[in-house]
Nucleic acid binder design. Structure first.
Lengths: 343, 343
DNA sequence: GTGAAAGCGCTAACAC
DNA sequence: GTGTTAGCGCTTTCAC
């Protein structure tokens, strides 16, 4: 293993100078720096992460904790975070909680505290006060993605706002009977995200002078299949007859489109559908949706972290609300007139 | 920061004993071990990963390199790998190559060589000889998932076998005009995987005494949409008229099902479809498929690595072929008789 | 601008 | 079975 003193010897300087030259910290004469860099390159020298970490106390590694891996949202956040971290020269170590039931405590009590990460990003995770405290006690900054955590800076979107926008889009097209398929309140995703999205639907309706009808809300669990099942219930009930539906995720919304097709309903002529996400499959299905940008959320989380890591800690725990955007495709249109056009 | 000598003092022993007691290496009297563990718990002591790594030369961390993140196969492998690594007490640091074009060289030249990982798992990556060599030069074991790498142990499935099985399933149902939608040879996935899968289709056909017709093969790029597009081509050509199609991935196969529907074809009455993967969406679409088990592939890769890491290196570079399995759902059936049934 | 040397916190010989 | 101690390979004062 070629070490720092091999480089020092070859460049004819001390190890201190090599360290300074290669890390960019402290002043080194340009000529010296060049000699050192050359020597390092020739020898194929790379600093030992553990030695460097031991000396500096910094691992240049951050932990990202996700509740699942096989979901578009999480992998997108991950992708954004990882890309930005790489630019900062940081590694990303991944903790996935979807395995054994005790994995969560293992991660928090064993792995995260082992001093292998300088900070952690928690994605869509409602952390307990103890979990937050134990991390903070070790001086590890923490930022959340996807929902607020008490006393922790967070990046997220306005969950009320997204469904409100989706609903307003339908209202502006002339729909008045608008259903909502949303997350089951006591399912996985926590953070009251399902509740907030439901509120957005209700708020928009009320503002338009329409009272949201509870029987037009159907719970589902954020999968295509559950969206399909919920839609069949909603569309099959002869008392309901919605002309449009706001769906809390694109995957569910695609399920809704397929259910409508299977029932002989034309989308959008008989039913307008709008989702939330802008999932990679949305264009293929022509799905109108409110895009959130999870990769960007991952990137911003990293930036927040880097700021905390670099500077004088402790700005305000800034809660970043990221933008979202209505993307109109072919799954929404004006409602079909009740009676045959008179022509 | 509470260190090892705080624990030693509190337990009334030496640091060496604390180290031994807590790591499980070397002999410690049961009573002593207990006292040490107690002291450590009371003080909330956790070993410093960097100090420990510096002393042992082991990071207890392995790097996993994937070409993409937003694909079912990769996240599944990742999930399996991560679960198993956790059991071994190892961390997983994630490298995703899907970003900037120079990310690959950055990962290989900067990150992996920084001595932060004890070994690496390369998923569906055709590594160059230099990439392999530079890793080996550092004494870092390497295992591949998803395809062979020269001189590197690999876990994968028999790509010829899976499509052969899928094709045989259709043949046994009585189909004789069987198309194939496969990966584009010069697209992302490398490893000749698309070519191998195509061979499986051809082999099975030939064995049944049927000459595979090149015009019944359509290339696509492993997305639902590309499967849809390819299927439209295949099904729209009046000279072709396949009664069944073997598709190289479930996502593409779902695209095929949707295309058939849009053309007024009934699956499976007018067209049988079989995919490869057993993707999470397969049950929802009733897709008959050949399941591969990517999570298991991730787990096995870890096991291979642990064996290399633990023992006397250098067994044979064992290439593990993992099992696959035909899962029959509702997208395949006997072909419709050419003429109306005579009753 | 550069060098000498004292750690960083643990592990593993080696003694006993 | 347990203690002493010499590193592991860097970084960073402190001198010069």
């Amino acid at each position: 293993m070629v070490g720092i003193d091999d480089v020092a010897r070859r460049a004819g300087v001390s190890t201190a100078t090599v360290s300074r030259a290669l890390s960019g910290r402290g002043h080194v004469a340009a000529a010296t720096r060049e000699r050192v860099e050359e020597a390092a390159a020739e020898l194929g020298y790379v600093v030992s992460a553990s030695a460097s970490s031991l000396a500096t106390g910094r691992m240049r590694n951050i932990g990202v904790v996700v509740p699942f891996l096989n979901r578009w949202f999480y992998t997108s956040v991950l992708e954004g975070a990882q890309r930005r971290l790489m630019q900062y020269g940081y590694d990303l170590t991944l903790y996935n909680l979807s395995g054994a039931s005790n994995e969560r405590s293992t991660v928090f009590e064993q792995f995260l505290l082992r001093q292998r990460v300088d900070a952690v990003i928690a994605v869509s995770l409602e952390l307990s006060a103890e979990e937050v405290d134990s991390l903070h006690a070790l001086g590890k900054p923490l930022v959340g993605v996807g929902g607020p955590i008490r006393g922790v800076p967070t990046v997220s979107i306005d969950d009320v706002g997204v469904t409100r926008l989706a609903t307003e889009h339908l209202l502006s097209l002339g729909h008045t009977v608008i259903g909502h398929i949303g997350g089951d309140v006591d399912a996985e995703m926590s953070f009251h995200m399902p509740t907030n999205r439901r509120h957005g639907w209700e708020d928009a309706l009320r503002e338009a002078g329409l009272e949201p009808r509870p029987e037009l809300y159907f719970p589902a669990v954020f999968t295509m299949e559950s969206g399909y099942v919920a839609a069949k219930q909603m569309l099959g009930d002869p008392r309901l007859r919605p002309t449009a539906v706001v769906v809390a995720s694109d995957e569910m919304a695609i399920g809704v489109i397929l259910a409508a097709r299977d029932m002989g309903l034309d989308v959008p002529r008989d039913l307008s559908v709008v989702g939330i996400d802008d999932h990679e499959l949305a264009p293929f299905f022509g799905l109108t949706t409110v895009a959130q940008f999870p990769e960007q959320q991952g990137e911003r989380a990293v930036e927040l972290l880097m700021r905390e890591l670099d500077q004088s800690r402790e700005d305000e725990p800034a809660n970043l609300q990221l933008p979202f955007e209505l993307i109109v495709r072919s799954s929404t249109s004006r409602p079909r007139p009740e009676r045959e056009p008179r022509d």
